[in-house]
Nucleic acid binder design. Structure first.
Length: 152
DNA sequence: GCCAACGTTGGC
DNA sequence: GCCAACGTTGGC
């Protein structure tokens, strides 16, 4: 089983929305590297950190599980959507994503600053300068360390 | 195929 | 609101 970190802006869709909805299609990703992780690397049952970006403060808010893979992102074919992609061919959709399932919301968010301050996480993708990728792999070790920080 | 211009992300 | 980093676009 693999581990991941997936970003969303909590003002748009945060961990509390997922707690309410239980299941959610992770649509709107329009970066090929992030798409490739979802399309090619994720498996049902993988776990992912739900990361709050563009938040005060930004950080890891909880855990979710990959519930379904190979999901055609419906927004690419919706002319009303901000994520509409007129170049995507319905017979060969460009944007494939996953459906995620709520697992838990941490009692307290683990702030990005705490991740940066932890020398054991120096190599973690999310703390790297200029790292914008919205879907990132997390190593087993990083996963355990961050979970430990979340649970005190 | 190069690369400048432009758009987006996301921390601060 | 600023701006650094980085991805994409499009002219050549």
């Amino acid at each position: 089983m693999a581990y991941w970190l997936m970003k969303s802006e909590p003002d748009v869709y945060g961990i509390e929305h997922l707690r309410r909805d239980r299941l959610e299609v992770w649509d709107g990703v329009r970066n090929y590297t992030a798409r490739n992780f979802m399309r090619d690397e994720m498996s049902v049952g993988d776990l992912a950190f739900f990361y709050h970006s563009n938040a005060k403060p930004p950080g890891v808010a909880g855990v979710m599980r990959i519930h379904r893979t190979g999901v055609v992102d419906p927004t690419q074919f919706d002319p009303e959507s901000h994520y509409h992609d007129p170049k995507s061919d319905p017979d060969d959709p460009r944007w494939i994503c996953v459906e995620v399932e709520f697992v838990e919301a941490f009692d307290e968010l683990v702030p990005l600053q705490d991740l940066k301050d932890n020398p054991d996480l120096a190599d973690m993708a999310v703390v790297q300068r200029g790292q914008r990728l919205s879907v990132q792999p997390v190593t087993d070790r990083e996963w355990e360390i961050v979970l430990g920080m979340a649970k005190g």
